[in-house]
Each structure stands twice: as C-alpha cells, then as structure tokens.
Amino acid sequence: MRILLAPDSFKEAASAEAIAQAMARGIMRGDPQAECRLLPLSDGGEGLTHALVHATGGTLHDVETVDAVGRPIIAQFGFLGNKHTSRTAVVELASASGLEQVSPADRDPMAASTFGTGLLIRAAIDAGADRIVLGLGGSATTDGGTGLAHAFGFRFLDAHDSDIPLGGGALVDLARIDDSRVSDSIKNVPIVLACDVTNPLTGPEGAAHVFAPQKGATATQVELLDQGLANLARAIMQYNGRDIEYTPGAGAAGGTGGGMLGLFNATVKPGIELVLNLAHGREACAWADVVITGEGSIDSQTPYGKVPSGIAKLAQSQGKPTIAIGGTVTSDPHTVEALNKAGIIATFGIAPGPADLTTLIANTERNVEITCATIASTLRITAATSPCESA
C-alpha cells in the first residue's frame, strides 16, 4: 500500500516535517510492507519555508534580522529547487515577526513591527531572488506591513512631515507616504502572498478587531489599531489610488496583506492551494492509495483553507481517500459533515487518554507514531480482507 503523509505542523508542539517523520515511523510499525512518501505542508503560516524547500529540493539561508519588538534574531528564507525558471524565494512572516518569537510578557501590540520580515525579504532579493512567496500567518504585529515597507525605504510621515515610529499604534498619526528612497526595481518584484484568511483591513472583521486581541491588545488598543489601519488605507489611496481597505485578505497578518497590496507588486493566493501547486501535490496524490494528513486541532476551521481539507479535496478529485489526525478532534456534527464533504473519511485524535496539555504537547510525536501504527494495521487488515472471496 502506498501512503502519502501530508500533515501541517502541530502548533507549539512539532513541525510539519517532524510530524511526517513520526507518521512514517508509525506506518512502518503497523505495516512494514507499506510505501510512504512524506509531503509536509503549510497553509501559508508557520512552516511554509521548510515545506516548500523540502518539497522542491531547495535551499535554506540564515539571515541576521530582528523580531517583532526589535531584538536581534536569526531567521531563514528559502530558495525553491526543481529547476524553477524564476529564482523564487520563500519567506514566512512568522519567522522574523511571529507571535511565537516573543514571550507573552514581552509582547507589545502597539509597537510590534514587521521590519524584521522586510530585512529578510531584502536579503533574499540581494541573494538573487526575482520572485517572492510570502506566507502571511502567525504574526505578532498589527502595523499593516509598514515596518516591512520601511525596510525598503518607504517613509511614513505625520502632518509635520516627521517619520512616525514603527508599530501599528503610530499609524493614527500617519498623514502621507513617501517613496523617494525606494527603487523601482524593488516595487516591481512580484510578491505572491500565501494567505488563508479573507478578512478586510478594517472594521468588525478586520485585522485589529479579529486578530489583535490574541496578540495582547486591550479593547482600547484594538480601537486605536483599527483607526491606524484605516489611516493607512487612506494614505495609500492618496499615494497611488489603490483602494485596499476592504479587499479580501487585506487584514491578514495584522494588515500586512493590505500594506503589501497597496505598496508593492503583490497578489494574494490561498495558502494551501499555492503550496500544493508548488509542492506538486497532485502528482503525489496520484501516486498514493491513501493520504494521511493532520494538524494540531481538527475543528470548525479545518474545512476552510486549512492543510487537511486542502490536501483531502485534491486527493478526492482523484478518487483517493484521506484520513486526518489531530491533537484534538471535534465531534461537532456540522464540522464532521464538512470534513466528509472535503474528502476526509475518518479522523483520529492522538491523545492516548486524559492528560495535562504540557504532557500531551511533549509527547506529540510519540502519540502521532502510535496513532499511525494503529491506522496502518487497520488499513493492512482491510486490504487483506476486502477482495471478494472465491466461491
């Protein structure tokens, strides 16, 4: 039996690559005769760079940059392999400007900036990239991508033509944008935004109201951040006539989607679709008899743009069944029905029994391995008994 192992990361527990390897160990325990192909995936957030570099035989590059609160860190970008005609670099915003890079005690939703991601993209372009894939997800910021743009020379000025500070909180004082220090070559580099949300920039469903609270923002700060992003939208309209405030995806990564669409040669694509295309997911599904996928929580969001539903739909289009595993698995009937429609025929929780969260996270890879061993044993028995018996 040929089994495609195509998980996302289990957030705060293990990377997609580590989960895929644990799956493979489990499959070999349950069915030593099985053939496995590993295809760790991402929907555009954490793990995007490693997933695409792994899938295409590309290369990783370390860069000195800063995190969302300005502290020096080492982050990575990747170049795609597989003889891509363009020199495509992959950057994930979470690598330099991610929430997980900053401890809860150090998070500052008003001052957090995407400047470090801008330095990372600049390093990729300096290394020869002529196309960028930027994963939007997992950010600690609500600055509308202004920090990123600042790294390329954009200036964000107040009514007195003074530079405003980095961070979303300062955008309430933004009056205009100056690009006199930005080269046309930078503005014209194609940037594809891998995004799994459709939120607008502002309003009740916008970046500040929906995402800023989980980054530490109070109710008062949320209102100020929303005002600042509305200010940014007006400044971009004045700068080049682009209306990005209610564009789907503009609210991604604290409004970075909107800033990129307004200031750069950027387009938005659903993250999982982009990844599956670049990682040759269709060919991988065609090879497999069954697909096993997973993520940290199989819940109401899973059917909508997440890795398990994305790979399941692709496999379903080729008549291949998909099984999903998760740290937690919902029993909500509406979600289960949506998962079934997406092509996921069964879901399994990996928790062996009641335990505290810290213990479960620490044992994630072991529990993935055990669960996949059980699945493989079941598949092997089913395959052995499924042919019609002779009379």
Results as ranks from 00 to 15, higher is better:
Trp287Pro: 14
Leu99Ser: 01
Ser95Cys: 08
Lys187Ile: 10
Leu4Thr: 10
Ser183Gly: 15
Leu60Lys: 03
Ala373Thr: 04
His54Cys: 00
Gly257Glu: 13
Ala288Phe: 04
Pro190Lys: 11
Ala266Pro: 02
Pro109Leu: 09
Ile236Ala: 05
Leu119Asp: 03
His150Gln: 11
Ala324Pro: 05
Val307Glu: 07
Gly343Arg: 03
Thr347Ala: 00
Leu39Val: 08
Gly249Asn: 07
Pro308Asn: 10
Ser390Arg: 12
Thr364Asn: 01
Phe211Lys: 14
Gly258Trp: 05
Ala219Arg: 14
Val133Ala: 00
Val192Phe: 09
Arg380Ile: 08
Leu360Ala: 11
Cys36Trp: 11
Lys11Pro: 13
Val91Thr: 01
Ala123Asp: 03
Gly98Ile: 15
Ala18Thr: 08
Ala140Lys: 06
Arg122Asp: 09
Ala94Ile: 14
Arg107Ala: 02
Gly296Tyr: 03
Ser331Tyr: 08
Gln318His: 11
Val291Ala: 02
Val275His: 10
Leu193Gly: 02
Ile27Leu: 14
Ala362Asp: 08
Asp67Arg: 05
Gly30Ala: 08
Val53Ser: 02
Cys372Arg: 02
Asp178Phe: 07
Lys320His: 03
Ile361Asn: 04
Met260Ala: 15
Asn240Glu: 11
Ser103His: 10
Ala373Tyr: 00
Thr117Arg: 10
Glu100Asp: 10
Thr335His: 04
Ile344Glu: 03
Gly45Met: 13
Leu193Cys: 04
Ala6Phe: 10
Gly203Val: 07
Ser103Glu: 15
Leu80Asp: 02
Glu12Met: 15
Ala383Gly: 15
Thr302Leu: 04
Cys195Asp: 13
Gln301Asp: 14
Thr49Asp: 01
Pro72Cys: 06
Leu93Ile: 13
Gly259Lys: 06
Lys320Arg: 11
Thr335Ser: 08
Leu166Trp: 05
Ala112Gln: 15
Asp179Ile: 00
Leu174Gln: 04
Ile125Cys: 13
Leu134Glu: 14
Ile74Arg: 15
Gly258Cys: 13
Ser162Ala: 14
Ala170Phe: 01
Arg234Met: 12
Leu232Phe: 13
Gly257Tyr: 12
Leu60Val: 06
Thr385Cys: 08
Ser185His: 14
Ala362Phe: 03
Arg107Thr: 01
Thr378Cys: 07
Ser42Trp: 06
Asp243Tyr: 03
Gly26Cys: 15
Ala315Glu: 02
Ile73Gln: 07
Val368Trp: 00
Gly168Val: 15
Leu357Thr: 11
Ala217Ile: 12
Gln227Asp: 15
Ile186Ser: 05
Ile121Thr: 15
Ala18Cys: 05
Gly147Met: 00
Ile236Pro: 01
Asp62Glu: 13
Val368Ser: 03
Ile325Arg: 06
Ala219Met: 10
Leu41Gln: 11
Gly78Pro: 13
Asn188Cys: 04
Lys341Tyr: 14
Ser331Asn: 10
Ala68Gly: 00
Ala22Val: 11
Leu136Lys: 03
Leu5Arg: 06
Pro303Lys: 01
Lys320Glu: 02
Glu295Val: 12
Met237Gly: 09
Ser300Glu: 13
Ala127Thr: 10
Thr347Lys: 00
Val66Asp: 07
Leu5Gly: 06
Ser42Glu: 03
Asn363Thr: 09
Ser86Gly: 11
